[in-house]
Amino acid sequence: MSLLELRGVDKIFGGLHAVRGVSFAVEKGSIFGLIGPNGAGKTTLFNVITGVYRPEHGEILLAGKDLAGLRPARIAARGVARTFQNIRIFRSMTVAENVMVAGHHLHSASIADAMLRTRRYEQDERALGKRAHELLEIFGLSHLAQEVAGSLPYGSQRRLEIARALMLSPELLLLDEPAAGMNSQEARTLNEQIRFLRDKLGLTVILVEHNMAVIMKVCETIHVVDHGETIAQGNPAEIKVNPAVLAAYLGQEEPNNQARS
């Protein structure tokens, strides 16, 4: 059964119909690509799914339950984690702290426990620290755990953002242009990491990406939007030759430029 399902979602900003009647279903355990030219509404869809924006119409079902109207924190707590297009790490905090922030579900100690440093608090704190380091290990960041996050190079910040998202123990992970600014070597590593997330951690991944090399290699299903509307959906081979997709991209920008690696 599908883990996430969108049914006729509309998002309007003033006079701009940013998303119009978009419907799709993401199978559990799949890697789902969401592509389209700049301004097509991909990030808006992410923001609608994660509750940052409230859609005007339509349903967003996570494992059959409607997410509409929930605040972002509640949706995150239900297992939807995300990264941001324009990296939003907590810059002045350390790398380890960044990851630990997302560990609320591992933390049952109250504020009073924290103030009095009770045993329960210390157990929670240890569990958080341990989990955070496991995740940093996966993304090759554990040696940087005590560094200030804002001082990390760009690629490491992107990976930190994914590690932080995983701290939520999500079922569904939304990655907003994770390969942006990465060189081809880093992008290849990213491919492997995304597959690892699915194969070893059992995650379902939705990927917004302009780097066609990444999209075509890792995604099983690709959904294409343009001007807020769905124009195609299919597997990579189908999308590559879909005339509507080619037209949308050629009208805007050259897809081959993106796919140089």
């Binding site: 940052v52 907590f90 922030v101 609320h104 932080r164 939520l168």
Partner: peptide
Amino acid sequence: RSLTAIREDEIAAEAMA
């Protein structure tokens, strides 16, 4: 840590539950 995260970036803090 969560309070500091709110100071740093409230939207990201929300997205981290």
